[in-house]
Amino acid sequence: MDIQDIIKEENKVYCKPELIDDVHMHYCPGCSHGVVHKLLAEVIAEMGIADRTVGVSPVGCAVFAYNYVDVDWVEAAHGRAPAVATAVSRLWQDNVVFTYQGDGDMAAIGTAESIHAANRGENIVMIFVNNAIYGMTGGQMAPTTLIGQKTATTPYGRRVDLNGHPLEITNLMAILDGTCYVTRQAVHTPAAVRKTKACIKKAFENAIAKKGTSVVEIVSTCNSGWKMSPVESNEWMAQHMFEKYPLGDLKNI
């Protein structure tokens, strides 16, 4: 059989989401960001809201998110995405606004903005990619780095006496009256990917229904920063990260 006989519309089982551009991604092979971008693009397209969705990209590895997903974007200063999203959402109430934040953005430099936007119950979606490391700047400690985990700034492993404890910011988000939906997911298996997609969709539905702030944490891998292969990273994540950051809904009202 010739290959051209196989490449036919009726044989198609998978395709690139229509909102993902034909450009080279800067993310490392094996990184979770690519999957999360794909899910975002699929959800926005399936809900038919691309013409009224605005993304707020962070500082960190996802700083260039605006190069890949075909909606309007504004690039925020480090940690300020929730403040930026607050104004975008309040000034254009028919538009659907989401932030895309890493662990440094959400739980270190942007803790105040993240907590307060959620506490005000801004009608926004916060996508939180927690890979327990600062990937963009070369693998330094994140607020979510595990005890004992080696990074460029904790070369002998994170120590409580020197570096304090890993911050479970999503748990904090769940106790705020302004949040309507807080969940922690991952994208390391096909089943987890499908589950996360459903969660992202629910978060966008909440924003449209003006129910308050939805937070979707995605426990993620950074195989370059962790200095592991993509497969080893997934295994290490399941073994170590899920213990500190267990998957599942923390709040759903």
Binding site: V74, A83, T86, H116
Partner: peptide, 17 residues
């Protein structure tokens, strides 16, 4: 806002629209 930092970034977001 919760701070001057948040307030100016809200201005940035609003101005972007």
């Amino acid at each position: 806002a919760e701070s001057e930092v948040a307030a100016i970034n809200m201005v940035y977001g609003g101005a972007a629209t």
